[in-house]
């Protein structure tokens, strides 16, 4: 394995970990709201959250490139804040990965929250628990399997992403050249031996992740595809 491969692996792990942490923080309130609300916005927001499941990554990547770019609306904002533009940077990859893996974290959480039902919440309320207290001591423990599923799927899906990072990454070593892009380069350059090492490693890794998911959390079996 070359230095380039190792750099790509470390970068991918860094990206996937950071993305997972951000997603868990963002998605917990969002999923809670989606699970509990009777608002008429529930359906449209749920649909927007699920969009990355359906869209080809190239579509997502292309729109990110255009909107985050110097002429795009988000690009204008980041520039006026003095942050520069996001494409071709690690921060840009994190933003893209968060969007791309969003449904894989929101949906398991939403289902876990919905499965709790009203009973435990009402019981906690009669014992004068504050809403925050209820959430921390009742909801979070009950939704633990959902959190495990969400974290594993979010992490694994980010490791496996390709089309989006290829589009907005610019293939810069140690900044945006993740494993999938490195494998793609090996294949395109006809260096099949190097491609096999990394690809085989990724197959093994993916298998172990899914094995862990199913072993830790039998309820997830068959519900999701990574």
């Amino acid at each position: 394995m070359s230095d380039g491969d190792l750099t790509a692996i470390l970068l991918t792990l860094r990206l996937a970990s950071l993305t997972t942490v951000i997603l868990l923080v963002l998605c917990t309130p969002l999923a809670w709201w989606l699970a509990r609300t009777a608002s008429r916005w529930k359906a449209p927001i749920g649909a927007v959250v699920a969009l990355p499941l359906v869209l080809p990554p190239t579509v997502l990547g292309f729109y990110l490139l255009v909107t985050l770019g110097p002429q795009g609306p988000v690009g204008q904002i980041t520039q006026s804040l003095g942050l520069g533009v996001l494409p071709f940077s690690f921060a840009g990859l994190v933003v893209a990965s968060v969007l791309y893996s969003l449904p894989f974290v929101v949906q398991p959480l939403q289902q876990a929250f919905a499965a709790i039902g009203n009973g435990p919440l009402e019981a906690a309320a009669t014992l004068r628990a504050s809403p925050l207290d209820t959430f921390v001591h009742v909801v979070l423990p009950l939704a633990r399997p959902g959190f495990i599923t969400a974290a594993i799927l979010g992490f694994a899906h980010t490791v496996g992403e390709f089309g989006v990072v290829l589009m907005i990454g610019g293939n810069i070593p140690n900044k945006t050249r993740v494993i999938s892009v490195q494998i793609y380069d090996h294949v395109e350059a006809m260096d099949y031996a190097a491609a096999h090492w990394l690809s085989g490693g990724l197959v093994l890794f993916s298998f172990l992740v899914l094995l862990a998911l199913y072993a830790l959390n039998p309820a997830a079996r068959g519900n999701y595809r990574g």
Binding site: L65, G69, P70, Q71, F88, M167
Partner: peptide, 16 residues
Amino acid sequence: LAENLAQSYQYIATGN
């Protein structure tokens, strides 16, 4: 680094 000429064109055409 673009993966091919089309992507290089895209990076420049979008001003990135």
